[in-house]
Computed example of a mutant assay.
Amino acid sequence: SLSGALELWFDEALKHATATFLKEATASVTDLRSMCRMWAVRSTCHTIFGTAMPDTDMAEGIAQVQVFHRFMFNKNTGALRDAETLEEFQRTRAFLDEAVRVGLAAARTGDRTILASLLEAMPGDIQAEERIDHLRPVLFRILFERLGIDGLSLLWALVHLGQDPDLVEEIAKEALSETGASSLATAVASEIQRLYPELPFFYRTTSQDLNFDTMTIPAQATLLFSPFLLHRDGRCWEQPTRFDPRRFLNGAGHPAHFVPFGIGANARRQADRVIAQSATVLTVICKTSLFGLAAQSRPGDLLPVFRSILAPRGRISLWWKSRAFELVAQRA
């Protein structure tokens, strides 16, 4: 019964998270990664759990959830059966229990959160700890489906836009004439997922022999698949290492070559959701702000480390101005 309202709730949380991001983006943004991480937490977790747990505590817990998710995503079925014995599982469960417990204590009838709505639907004779056991897996699944990893899609978009003021101006102009997300901002969000996919690589263990023409991959072999490498393959993309969002306006590339969340219907839905979310916030940012890389942002810091997530090598700083403030200053 909530499904029709959920997208509206998440849209509202995204607006509030973006507004908070802009308030915190003063003249100098000294740690862009931290700000993007908090933006991701606020845009997702407030709708799921509410706001009772401090955002900093939620961010620390979410980091643990993501470690567990990346760990389990690359495990075979046998490892999954023993998941409860793993330290990563126990830490994740402890955080989720605390998040649910704090959310339950603060929940009020009519709150526009998933936790409060589920609580209203539960029979009144269920004990407190049982409520947590019922709610934890449901909320974890929604969190897993919704949460962008560390807000890195926003971070990398701002890194590239911060080096291309003309592109920022184009998005700002589109925002004045279009409703919703700018089409160019959507192309930027797609290009960011091409260059910095949410899942840069993952692996699987074969359950049986696989035959491909003359090649046989035996059962119990480990297969590594890398969207990061596929997205930078010159056989699939023209000038693959170049940041060129307009390639997505021109329909470049084959859908099978663009798999930032992996393969399958769920992966495509996640990709569409993250791209739409990123495009919305980039449109707002470009329409309201002027920004660029600060002098202390070294070129080497802007390169991703090829690990389970594509985080930058060092701290990224930006200079930042409000367009409205700049306009007043020019008139003065």
Rank of each mutant, 00 (worst) to 15 (best):
W9Y: 05
A13P: 07
K15T: 11
T18H: 07
E24K: 15
A25K: 00
V41I: 15
T44L: 07
P54N: 07
D55R: 08
I62A: 04
A63R: 09
Q64H: 07
K75W: 06
R81G: 00
D82S: 12
E88F: 09
E88N: 01
Q90Y: 06
R91N: 11
A94D: 10
F95D: 01
A99P: 00
V102Q: 06
G103L: 09
A107S: 12
D111G: 02
R112S: 10
L115D: 02
S117V: 09
L118P: 02
A128M: 12
A128G: 03
I132T: 11
F144M: 10
E145M: 13
R146N: 11
A157L: 09
L158C: 03
H160A: 01
E174P: 00
A175M: 12
L176Y: 00
A189G: 11
S190W: 01
E191R: 05
R204H: 07
Q208W: 02
D209Q: 13
I217N: 07
A221C: 13
T222M: 15
F228W: 14
L230W: 03
H231R: 05
P240A: 10
R242W: 04
D244F: 09
R246K: 14
N250W: 09
G251V: 09
P255T: 06
F258H: 06
F261G: 01
G262Q: 07
Q277T: 15
T280L: 11
L282D: 00
F291M: 11
A294V: 11
R298F: 07
L303G: 01
R307H: 09
P312L: 05
W319R: 07
S322W: 10
R323S: 10
E326Q: 15
R331I: 12
